[in-house]
Design a protein around this nucleic acid. Structure first.
Lengths: 208, 208
DNA sequence: GACGAATTGGACAAGACTGTCTAAATTTGT
DNA sequence: ACAAATTTAGACAGTCTTGTCCAATTCGTC
């Protein structure tokens, strides 16, 4: 395990103040001096950890958003599968859990560091997701007022039943993820199902 | 400020390991020795803090659930007002933010302590809220499959736009709370609006 | 005002941690 | 195989924190 990975693990488990360099070095399988050679001091190492996690998480999120069902065959099934991918690859995996915990625990102490995360993470990913939902609405699959609101509510709904696990830092089982996603997507579709409209619009859909 | 209140503040700001007793004593306006006289050692003090927060939060949540609109005049407006009360009095206030942060940061280190919170907090409050929604459904105001799921999704929806503020430990403005509640309740009602049903059921409603 | 209880400030020992230094050992590149 | 670069183990000073002890002071109550 690399030094940054070990540091991420220890910082998350013990908190910034409680993490000690000896433990990080031991967990990484190197000597303490090597840690100092590579990363200077503790704060520097912490920043490196957060940057690393942010980068990998964002990459994962964008890669997953790229699998959004733009031309769904079975809208419910496709959205559920997408939600499960999102959870598994971005939110419940190691990087996602670690980054979330570090933000919650130390976010106030490093405003500029986490402002960077905020702009490049949620700021961009939510827009990207909103754009996909807008496209689904435009294609007539959904009836959405504000795509940004819809995107945030989609994420909130498919994670609704995992909140306690997230709180305590646990990893939900595959079954829990699936159930939460299923319930969430069903409610989402009940709310945003294409409204019955005058024949013209449905005809347009059929035509497309 | 009491010792436990000051300790809560410092534990949240600095984390368990980073909190030092001198600072807590100073913030509480007492001497360090007094802190030790009252609470023994650091761990003991921490447990007292969590118990205190848990108790007050649960009391607040139950008091707020008691204001649930069982006989709504304007369902949307009443649910929005309820959601705003829930946020202001239980989730965004000092106790709520502190308890959430302590659970996230130290939950894994004190399993039995937070298991207690889990049973008496979410376990009971979610059931209580679910019961209220079931009643609304029974009275014909909503069409709900699983009240427990609906209750969790209600909370998730009305908080959907406040996630980032929660992450960073901030307090959303009154306006943000209202907007998130409004958007959340509207989507919730779109999904769970009473389904058009054969005349018999509507007649029953009118009869009641 | 007087007496018992609580609080205070400060000193203190014991331990932990950070960050530096150095000399030896190991790895790497050629 | 050899030289350079990196890694290692350990010692080290300096700082911080916890938890205890104690004498002096303040507070509450009668």
């Amino acid at each position: 395990m690399s030094v940054v990975d070990a540091a991420a693990s220890v910082f998350c488990r013990e908190g910034y103040a409680g993490a000690n360099i000896d433990l990080i070095a031991a967990e990484a399988g190197v000597s303490r001096q090597t840690v100092y050679n590579h990363h200077g001091d503790k704060e520097n190492l912490f920043v490196a950890v957060v940057r690393d996690l942010t980068e990998r998480c964002n990459a994962g999120i964008f890669a997953t958003i790229a699998t959004f069902p733009d031309q769904p065959t079975d809208l419910e099934a496709d959205l559920i599968a997408f939600a499960v991918r999102m959870n598994r690859n971005c939110i419940c995996n190691r990087d996602g859990r670690f980054l979330r915990k570090l933000i919650q625990a130390e976010g106030e102490r490093y405003p500029e560091l986490f402002a960077e995360w905020r702009e490049q993470g949620p700021g961009r990913t939510w827009s990207a997701l909103a754009a996909r939902f807008a496209r689904l609405a435009f294609a007539g699959h959904l009836s959405i007022g504000d795509p940004d609101v819809a995107a945030r509510q989609f994420l909130a709904l498919v994670n609704a039943e995992l909140q306690i696990a997230f709180m305590l830092g646990g990893t939900p089982t595959e079954e829990e993820v699936l159930r939460s996603a299923t319930n969430g997507v069903r409610t989402f579709l009940s709310a945003f199902a294409r409204k019955k409209s005058p024949a013209g619009k449905q005809a347009a859909l059929v035509h497309a």
